[in-house]
């Protein structure tokens, strides 16, 4: 199994100031917040637990992958896709609002040997860890290809930013951008093109499982970042478990990144 570096120290629990709220398409938001203290090292795949402010009906914190960090200006950025009352409220934040956050939580994607070729596959809110992952891979002298899927072209975000780290392939279910179909139907998976040393994936479970199966069939190492419902996010409630070769493991503590061969997935 891959060795995952655990980021267990220097946790921040602080109120952060909202610096910017962008709304590139309906239901999609990019939040930038400023930390009152220095931001510790954030690894690709790490997440934060965010307390949705002024939302008495949102009892628990919500986990979000960390999209990007600007250590110098103490800025941290998130992608918020509206799926429920918590995410809806986060999209309604205003510049200047204070938001309580705990981070960095969870483990991170592992990097391949320098020079190796990586394919990063995601859809929906699964694209959130890809900027930090792309940066880390480029720094590690890897060649990066992204494959991003969505229902329609307005669901395919971050293309410009991702393209600074590697080629970006796109699929949409309605064919409005890139190849038509699901990400797993993209031509990059054809045997003559599917030549990578490492696959990374994040998105809905069925997509990640399908990507993992394609990678395993081709003998390529693959890591998936899971997004289970969590009550705490730091290893104590045992609510976010996923079945693995070694029994039920906490996605927030043992993950969120797992080697696909270690996972049994939910039936």
């Amino acid at each position: 199994m891959g060795h995952f570096f655990m980021s267990r120290t220097n946790k921040i629990i602080e109120d952060h100031k909202v610096i910017e709220v962008l709304n590139p398409s309906p239901g999609n938001y990019f939040l930038t917040l400023q930390s009152p203290v220095e931001i510790p090292a954030i690894l690709p795949g790490n997440f934060a637990e965010i307390k949705v402010p002024d939302a008495p009906d949102v009892f628990l914190r919500r986990p979000f992958s960390i999209l990007d960090v600007d250590y110098k200006n103490r800025l941290i950025r998130f992608y918020v896709k509206v799926i429920g009352k918590g995410t809806k409220k986060l999209g309604e934040l205003n510049v200047g609002d204070q938001v309580s956050m705990i981070y960095p939580l969870g483990n991170s994607y592992t990097l391949p040997q320098p020079g190796h070729k990586a394919l990063i596959v995601g859809g929906g809110s699964g694209i959130a860890p890809f900027i930090l992952l792309g940066k880390a891979l480029i720094k590690n002298s890897n060649e990066v290809t992204f494959l991003i899927g969505g229902r329609s072209k307005q669901d395919v975000l971050l293309i410009n930013e991702l393209s600074s780290y590697g080629a970006v392939l796109i699929t949409t279910e309605d064919g409005s951008l890139g190849e038509r179909g699901l990400v797993t139907e993209h031509s990059v998976f054809r045997p003559d093109k599917f030549k990578f040393d490492k696959i990374y994936t994040c998105g809905p479970d069925p997509m990640m499982k399908a990507v993992g199966d394609l990678a395993t069939a081709a003998g390529i190492d693959c890591e998936a970042s899971l997004e289970n419902m969590m009550a705490c996010g730091f290893g104590i409630c045992l609510c976010c478990i996923t079945p693995t070769q070694e029994g039920n493991k906490r996605v927030c503590w043992d993950g969120p990144v797992f080697n696909v061969n270690y996972l049994k997935w939910h039936s």
Binding site: F59, N228, C237, L238
Partner: peptide
């Protein structure tokens, strides 16, 4: 003895609270 607990989902947020069904993992 070791207990794996119950299957996922084990948690549901509710009004001012939450339900859990961890099952003594």
């Amino acid at each position: 003895k070791n207990r794996e607990g119950n299957d996922y989902p084990r948690m549901a947020e509710t009004a001012s609270g939450m339900l859990n069904a961890v099952g003594l993992q």
